[in-house]
Structures are given as C-alpha cells and as structure tokens.
C-alpha cells in the first residue's frame, strides 16, 4: 500500500444503545487491514465502552470487550481518553478493559491537527 493517511477515529457513544461503538471498532480494524495508521479517541459517553465484563448476550449483541481486546493484534495501540471524560463518569483507568493513554483536554486541537482524516461516530 503506497499511500498512508493518518486516521483519527473519534467515538462519542456509549455501547449497545446504538451500533455506533461497534461501527467505530469495525472501521478501526478495516483501517488496519489497509495498513493505515489509526488513533482512537473516546470522547464523552464513549469511555463507557471500556467498562469491563460486558455480558451483551443478555441483549443479543456481540461482545465489544472481545473486539477491544483484539485491537492490539491489529497493531492499534494508540487509544486516547481525555481525563475529564473519565472523571465525568467516575471511572479510573484500572477499571477499563484495555490499556489506554490519558490526555489533557487542551491537547485535543493538536491531536486533530496531526491527523489527515478525522472520522466521528
């Protein structure tokens, strides 16, 4: 693949209520298959996707925790969460299903600027 674009995927939704969280993960895996570097940013309610021990079979859906765990296998290692988003929901990093990188909200504009394509979902 000759042309690489830096992708920033911004997820903004809680899991299972809509298909948005699942779609973001599908886009991320697809970017990886096309060998495009991907950064994931979880804003607002999207941090709720990373709460552990989902049991979505109760609502007949596939487990997002399993897909999240596979991100590292697709070489998607940069998963960012603003500290404020975590605080808003009373969560700490050790309660999350996968390792993430905390960032300051002030860093967000620079993060956007360092990517070629920004997809919100």
């Amino acid at each position: 693949m000759s042309i690489n674009k830096r992708f920033l995927l911004i997820s903004r939704s809680a899991p299972y209520g809509t298909s948005a969280a699942r779609e973001m993960l599908d886009i991320a895996l697809t970017c990886s298959v096309f060998e495009q570097p991907v950064t994931l940013l979880l804003l607002g309610d999207a941090v709720l996707q990373l709460i552990r021990d989902h049991r979505p079979d109760e609502v007949s859906q596939k487990n997002l925790n399993a897909l999240q765990a596979s991100l590292a296998m697709y070489d998607i290692d940069r998963i960012l969460i603003p500290e404020t988003a975590l605080q808003k929901h009373g969560l700490s990093t050790d309660q999350l299903s996968i390792p993430i990188e905390l960032i300051n909200a002030e860093q967000l504009p620079a993060l956007i600027a360092e990517h070629d394509i920004v997809i919100t979902i």
Binding site: R12, G44, A105, P109, L111, I112
Partner: peptide, 15 residues
C-alpha cells in the same frame, strides 16, 4: 449540548 461541547473541546483558534 454535549455534541457542541465535544466539538468545542477539539477546536483550535484558527479552526
């Protein structure tokens, strides 16, 4: 409001 809030949080001065 949260949609605008999230948008504003990512905006740079010259955006």
């Amino acid at each position: 409001a949260s949609c605008l809030e999230e948008c504003l949080s990512t905006m740079a001065n010259d955006d």
